[in-house]
Design a protein around this nucleic acid. Structure first.
Length: 289
DNA sequence: CATGTTTCCTGACAGC
DNA sequence: TGCTGTCAGGAAACAT
């Protein structure tokens, strides 16, 4: 499933392919689930816009769109520069964002098609419909999107002190805290399990009871795992593919995720599988304390 | 507010 | 072959 490294890979790939393109026309499916912004308003907002930039925020793919016409209003000061909105894509469990030639057959479960000036199409495909599409306004002064207030910190850039303070006093298991998008955003089930294994910490340990040393180990492990996964194009365990439909390779580096019953690669003890925070949870009872 | 539980969705797969 | 049941989980909604 797409988490931070997969979303980063897709966002970078889409950016390379569609930056500067103009959205000529838009088709949206009649299924209601994918749309946080109503489809008529979304299609109207997208049509005729130039795509300035595509990047990742947490597990969201953000498209910065130019104001219509794309130019500064005549005579306006720089501080009054017009700013376009953002198109936000969340891939959920099985979402795919593909840049395809228009001649390529449209896959089943396609919910959005943005026809681009080059003749190519940006397609959002999602069988399970846990993915979400939305329009966010941007603040004219800061040019920042307005939809991410109250969301968590970026795990790749958070400082050691801030990371430690996130978990102070929390009575929830550390794995549940890692998955909480209001604390950190971008971490999902795979990278929670993999980082806890590499830090030697059991998933059910109470977050507020971890020592500073353990939390520093966890931050280092999490950042290492996320960066390595980005280098390998993410983990393809179910439907995940990048913007060209290519699978990632980090699933070959998984040490515990989906390895219940198999020997620990460090000590040989069978990996244990339990359910925590409603998710399959995998850990080594010997290596993780 | 903090934390736990349920719900949404379909494809893959096991078992009969 | 074809049916049924189970499982996968991000995040919102709901319950405690």
């Amino acid at each position: 499933m797409p988490e931070l490294p997969e979303v980063e890979t897709v966002a970078n790939g889409v950016h390379q392919r569609v930056r500067g393109e103009v959205i000529e026309s838009v088709w949206l499916s009649s299924k209601p689930e994918p749309f946080k912004t109503n489809p008529e308003a979304m299609a109207e907002t997208l049509t005729g816009r130039r795509i300035e930039r595509v990047y990742r925020v947490g597990k969201h793919i953000v498209f910065d769109l130019a104001p219509r016409g794309g130019d500064l209003a005549a005579g306006k000061a720089k501080s009054e520069r017009k700013v376009g909105p953002q198109w936000i894509v969340h891939l959920g469990m099985t979402g795919r964002l593909l840049v395809s030639d228009a001649a390529v057959p449209v896959p089943a479960h396609t919910h959005a098609i943005l026809r681009l000036g080059s003749g190519r199409e940006l397609r959002f495909v999602d069988a399970r419909r846990f993915g979400r599409l939305a329009i966010h306004a941007r603040d004219a002064a800061t040019e920042q999107g307005k939809g991410f207030e109250g969301t968590g910190r970026e795990p790749l850039t958070i400082s050691s002190a801030d990371f430690i303070s996130l978990f102070r006093g929390r009575k929830t298991p550390i794995k549940a805290a890692l998955l909480n998008q209001k604390l950190l955003h971008g971490v999902g089930n795979i990278y929670a399990d993999e980082s806890l294994f590499r830090a030697g910490i059991r998933p059910k340990r109470m977050a507020g009871r971890l020592t500073r040393e353990e939390l520093e180990r966890l931050r280092a492990a999490l950042q290492l795992v996320l960066k390595h996964a980005i280098e390998l194009g993410g983990s393809s365990v179910s439907d995940y593919v990048d913007a060209d439909g290519v699978r990632g390779f980090f699933q070959l580096e998984h040490r515990v995720y989906l390895r219940g019953g198999q020997p620990c690669l460090t000590c040989g003890t069978p990996i244990r599988r339990t359910v925590l925070a409603g998710r399959g949870t995998h850990y080594c009872p010997t290596c993780q304390k």
